[in-house]
Amino acid sequence: MIRMITILGFFLEGVFALILVAWSRLNSASLATFGSLLDQVMRRRAARVTLVVFWWWLAWHFLVVPPGV
């Protein structure tokens, strides 16, 4: 039961993200799209490097580092 609640939390995060994407697509006047937000953020070096390192690290974490390390 507790495990399901934990998993449900991650699932709801995904649902909320999809709602934000759909909302911005349907009414970009009230919510800017994720893409236009990233366009602003990625112009700054610190943000750009941080986001890209996190993206790169996902593959590193799952494909290079064995569990428990």
């Binding site: 911005s24 009230s30 919510l31 800017a32």
Partner: peptide, 16 residues
């Protein structure tokens, strides 16, 4: 992008 940097829509998206 409607100048997302300065728009309410842009700020709302950033916060959410």
């Amino acid at each position: 992008d409607g100048g997302a940097r300065n728009s309410h829509a842009g700020r709302r998206a950033a916060v959410l």
